[in-house]
Simulated assay, not measured.
Amino acid sequence: MPNSNLEPLFSNPLFLSFFACILAPMVVLGTNSNHFSEYIGAQFKEVKFSDVPINSGVEFHYILSFAIDYSVVSTPPIPSNGKFGVFWDTQNLSPSAVSAIKKKYSNVKVAVSLGGATIVSDKYKVYFKATSVDSWVSNAVSSLTSIIKEYNLDGIDIDYENFSDESDTGTFTECIGLLITTLKRNGVISFASIAPFDDTLVQRMYKALWAKYSSVIDYVNFQFYGYDADTTVKQYVTYYDEQVANYPGGRVLASFMTENTAGVISADRGFSACQELKKENKLYGIFIWSADDSLSQGFTYEKESQALLTS
């Protein structure tokens, strides 16, 4: 039987509005931040953590690229249903190197990225493929926990870009969502990010994941450098606003690549867009692809980006 003393309270429109606000999820408003991330290790150019300049005023994340769930000893390589192995430059980016850089800089954390636009055996793309949600998650939690503990890592980044079943958003959503949830619940990681880009299939997969599991995803490392080379700063900002709308409440990072790749946004244009976003008070952070490419350039953009974030 209802408590008659509470009935007037719950029938009051002002109270109901206040109660709804309390229950509503927190929305992260656009605001400047000091967060900086850098992908590292995918291109085997012998770059070291210690090569990259680190500004003590930023929150600095290295993202090791990549771990893949593939059997690379098979011909052709085949998906291994969530059993991940290391597929980066382990000679220069070893467990001891991770420990050393984290000991030297208290503001540094290190994550591992999963999947990527990785090519194995020179011609085979890495696809997301799960035999079942339960088996994939079980294998992924086990194998990634071992890697994360061995390398003393702090987080994971989801960068699958190819999918064996392009119509099945549900399996990807549950596998990735439950993986992140379980690793966080077990205290194995403290943060997670996703790395979508402007592609119909990719956006469909990641937006479905976001719709159900955004509460366990800390950063959206959107690959803005995938837009056309003639993209203006104004258009970049428009694209940024579109992705903030696509991933509501998310901390969407601006980005650019330092590799000289024809047909995509240059590093100069990307950095100029970051400057504009800073002026508009919506530069949540910056990530760069990648330290491997910046090695031959003296890490100019890393220095400038971190200076911008701390200015």
Rank of each mutant, 00 (worst) to 15 (best):
D89Y: 03
Q91T: 13
L93M: 00
L93D: 03
P95L: 00
P95E: 05
V98D: 02
A100H: 14
I101A: 12
K102Q: 11
K103C: 04
K104T: 14
S106R: 12
S106G: 15
N107M: 05
A111Q: 14
V112H: 06
V112C: 04
S113R: 09
L114S: 01
L114G: 00
L114H: 08
L114M: 03
L114V: 05
A117Q: 13
T118N: 00
T118L: 05
K123H: 12
K125W: 11
V126Q: 00
Y127D: 09
F128I: 02
F128G: 06
K129R: 13
D134K: 15
S135I: 11
S138V: 02
N139D: 07
V141H: 03
S142G: 06
S146P: 00
I147M: 03
I148N: 06
K149T: 15
E150N: 14
E150Y: 11
Y151M: 06
N152S: 15
N152T: 11
N152W: 05
L153A: 09
L153I: 08
D154Y: 02
I158Y: 10
D159V: 08
Y160A: 06
Y160V: 07
E161W: 13
N162T: 04
N162I: 03
F163E: 01
F163R: 06
T169R: 07
T169F: 08
F172P: 06
E174Q: 14
E174A: 12
C175G: 03
C175N: 02
C175S: 08
C175M: 05
I176G: 02
I176E: 11
G177R: 00
G177E: 00
L178F: 09
L179F: 09
L179E: 11
I180V: 15
T181S: 14
T181H: 13
T181M: 08
T182G: 07
L183D: 13
K184T: 05
N186C: 01
G187K: 09
G187V: 07
G187I: 10
V188K: 10
A195V: 03
P196N: 10
P196I: 11
P196M: 12
F197W: 11
D198E: 13
D198I: 04
Q203N: 14
Q203G: 08
Y206S: 02
K207P: 06
K207E: 15
